[in-house]
Amino acid sequence: MSVSEQTAVSDGIILSDAAVAKVKSLLEQEGREDLALRVAVQPGGCSGLRYQLFFDERSLDGDVVKDYSGVKVVTDRMSAPYLGGAAIDFVDSIEKQGFTIDNPNASNSCACGDSFG
């Protein structure tokens, strides 16, 4: 993912243009404009912490909210320190399809890319 393909926020998550387009497409399929993409970190996974990405209509106290070309990305205040500078991309190839997270805060990660420590 090159810099030209990113919508960057210096103090938060970086969402690539491909990820923004995929989230917009999924939101259109849902038919709801009140949903935001929530990115969270939860205990679990083979490396200690795992990522969660899901649509959420809730607004929690202390949420960090960023807008990427009309896509709202929300991170709870406990997860935000683990996700600062994390780059989320959407890959659609023969080998793999889905969201990927490149997190500079991860000291180690698992082979599946779903958890980190």
Rank of each mutant, 00 (worst) to 15 (best):
Phe55Val: 01
Asn103Gln: 09
Gly117Arg: 12
Ser2Thr: 14
Gly84Glu: 09
Gly44His: 11
Glu33Val: 08
Ser109Met: 10
Thr7Trp: 01
Met78Trp: 11
Leu26Arg: 13
Ile88Pro: 01
Ser4Cys: 04
Leu53Met: 15
Ile88Tyr: 03
Gln97Ser: 14
Gln6Leu: 13
Cys110Thr: 11
Tyr51Ile: 04
Ile88Arg: 03
Gln97Thr: 15
Glu28Leu: 13
Gly12Ile: 05
Ala86Asn: 06
Val20Ala: 05
Gln6Gly: 05
Asn108Ala: 12
Ile88Gly: 02
Asp114Ile: 05
Val9Gly: 03
Asp63Thr: 04
Ala21Trp: 00
Val3His: 14
Ser4Gln: 08
Tyr82Gly: 02
Arg32Met: 10
Leu60Thr: 08
Ser16Ala: 00
Ser25Pro: 02
Glu5Met: 06
Pro104Ala: 09
Gly62Ala: 09
Tyr68Lys: 06
Ser59Gln: 14
Gly31Ser: 05
Asp92Cys: 08
Lys96Asp: 09
Arg50Cys: 10
Asp61Lys: 15
Gly113Asn: 04
Cys46Phe: 10
Ser93Arg: 11
Leu27Gly: 01
Ile14Glu: 02
Asp11Leu: 06
Gly85Leu: 02
Gln52Phe: 09
Gly12Glu: 08
Asp102Gln: 12
Asn103Pro: 09
Lys72Tyr: 10
Ser25Val: 05
Leu35Pro: 00
Asp56Gly: 12
Ser109Gln: 14
Leu49Ala: 12
Ser47Pro: 00
Leu26His: 06
Asp114Val: 07
Lys72Asn: 10
Ser69Glu: 15
Glu95Tyr: 11
Ile88Phe: 11
Lys96Val: 10
Ala21Tyr: 03
Ala86Cys: 15
Val73Ala: 04
Gly62Ile: 06
Ala80Phe: 14
Val39Ile: 15
Ser47Asn: 04
Ala21His: 04
Ala19Gln: 01
Lys66Phe: 11
Leu53Lys: 05
Phe99His: 06
Ser10Trp: 11
Asp114Trp: 00
Arg50Ala: 07
Gln52Lys: 13
Asp17Glu: 09
Ala8Cys: 13
Ala21Gly: 00
Ala111Trp: 08
Asp102Phe: 01
Asn105Gln: 15
Lys96Met: 13
Phe54Leu: 12
Gly98Thr: 05
Ala21Cys: 03
Val71Asp: 02
Ile101Met: 10
Leu35Tyr: 02
Gly117Asp: 14
Gly85Cys: 07
Met78Phe: 13
Val71Glu: 00
Gly44Trp: 10
Ile94Arg: 14
Thr75Arg: 01
Thr7Cys: 09
Ala86Ile: 02
Glu33Gln: 15
Ser59Leu: 11
Gly70Gln: 04
Phe55Trp: 07
Ala106Thr: 06
Ala87Arg: 13
Lys66Ser: 15
Val64Lys: 06
Glu57Leu: 01
Gly84Ser: 13
Gly113Glu: 02
Leu35Arg: 01
Ala36Thr: 08
Asp89Phe: 07
Ile94Met: 12
Val3Tyr: 09
Leu27Thr: 01
Val71Met: 04
Glu57Met: 04
Asp89Glu: 13
Ala87Gly: 07
Gly70Ser: 01
Ala19Pro: 04
Pro104Glu: 08
Lys72Ser: 15
Val3Leu: 13
Arg32Gly: 07
Val71Ile: 11
Leu49Thr: 09
Pro43Lys: 15
Ser79His: 08
Leu49Met: 14
Ala36Tyr: 03
Gly45His: 03
Tyr68Arg: 06
Asp17Cys: 00
Phe55His: 08
Gly117Tyr: 08
Ala40Gly: 08
Thr75Tyr: 01
